[in-house]
């Protein structure tokens, strides 16, 4: 029952509609998956960049006293366990940051700029954060402490939501695809009822008959899936090219690695297998109701 029986279910027209539907499904699925993978990468990059990083600001006091306090604070922080890096931000660096807003005035020596110290922590445990906060308060009770993670948490939350949304969409598409295949398989059974009856009477098993359908449906699904998947991959590549042109750090982190591309490229194959399985189950179930 191999190639010679492939023509048993001739009249291939009933597969055409399914190929179109699956092409559209795969286009949307690959886009959703790409979105999920990209936001996961972005969230990861963001987390690596900001987790365990904080900035201490000293805004009160005369400039000289503030500089002295900042130096003492830096020394105290370096001696604090859990701190991996202490980097006072120089006045020149701050002035550079402000120049777009203040123009030449940013270089004014009298401009009241806060003293800032960037601190990297070994970990993000609350205990570490509490220890560092206590150390800062011990030297400079009025200092402001900005934990980057706290203000970036909502962005990270948004990104993780987008990741889960992408995953959820892929699952929905898979369900919809399986449903389409089941409907198509049932229609195929109806269209070929006479042939199936003859096959049964000649002693064909349900598995043999189901194989005829699942082979065809897998082929139609693969054709549609590859077309839709390829279109989606091209779209993703185009979006990627435009995003990297923007030079944004957040979008840069959203780039897809080789593994992600492979995963996207395999989706049509996975869906074709899914279609084959759905067809097999639908057909053997329907055949089980015939004698």
């Amino acid at each position: 029952m191999a190639a010679s029986t492939a023509r048993l279910l001739d009249n291939a027209r009933d597969g055409r509609a399914m190929s179109y539907v699956i092409a559209i499904m795969l286009f949307l699925t690959v886009l959703s998956a790409a979105m999920g993978l990209a936001t996961r990468n972005a969230a990861g990059a963001l987390e690596r960049a900001i987790a365990g990083r904080l900035t201490v600001q000293l805004t009160s006091g005369a400039p000289d006293a503030r500089a002295a306090l900042a130096a003492r604070l830096a020394a105290r922080l370096r001696a604090t366990p859990g701190v991996t890096r202490v980097a006072p931000v120089s006045r020149a660096a701050l002035a550079d940051l402000l120049r777009p807003w203040l123009g030449a005035e940013a270089n004014d020596a009298d401009l009241p700029l806060p003293a800032m110290i960037d601190v990297d922590l070994a970990d993000t445990a609350p205990a570490t954060l509490a220890r560092v906060t206590a150390a800062v308060r011990g030297v400079a009770p009025a200092a402001r402490i900005d934990a980057h993670a706290s203000w970036m948490a909502s962005v990270a939350g948004m990104l993780s939501f987008a990741t889960w949304l992408g995953l959820g969409l892929v699952a929905l598409m898979a369900t919809a695809t399986a449903t389409v295949v089941v409907v198509a398989a049932r229609a195929g059974l109806d269209a070929h009822r006479a042939t199936i009856e003859v096959m049964h009477m000649l002693g064909a098993t349900d598995v043999q008959i189901a194989r005829l359908f699942q082979r065809r449906i897998a082929r139609d699904a693969l054709v549609g899936g590859v077309a839709g998947g390829a279109a989606a991959l091209a779209t993703v590549a185009l979006i990627g090219a435009r995003a990297s042109g923007l030079g944004s750090e957040l979008l840069g982190g959203a780039g897809l690695g080789a593994g992600a591309w492979l995963m996207l490229a395999l989706l049509p194959l996975v869906f074709a297998l899914l279609a084959m399985l759905a067809a097999r189950i639908a057909v053997t179930r329907a055949l089980g109701r015939i004698l």
Binding site: M1, R7, D10, N11, T195, E197, V198, M199, L202, G203
Partner: peptide, 24 residues
């Protein structure tokens, strides 16, 4: 008769052998 219309006469006659898994 119940011959399968889109198969040739030879393929129709061969069907029971193929169903039984006789080598091609």
């Amino acid at each position: 008769f119940r011959l399968i219309p889109h198969l040739s006469i030879a393929d129709n006659i061969a069907l029971p052998l193929r169903v039984a898994g006789v080598p091609e």
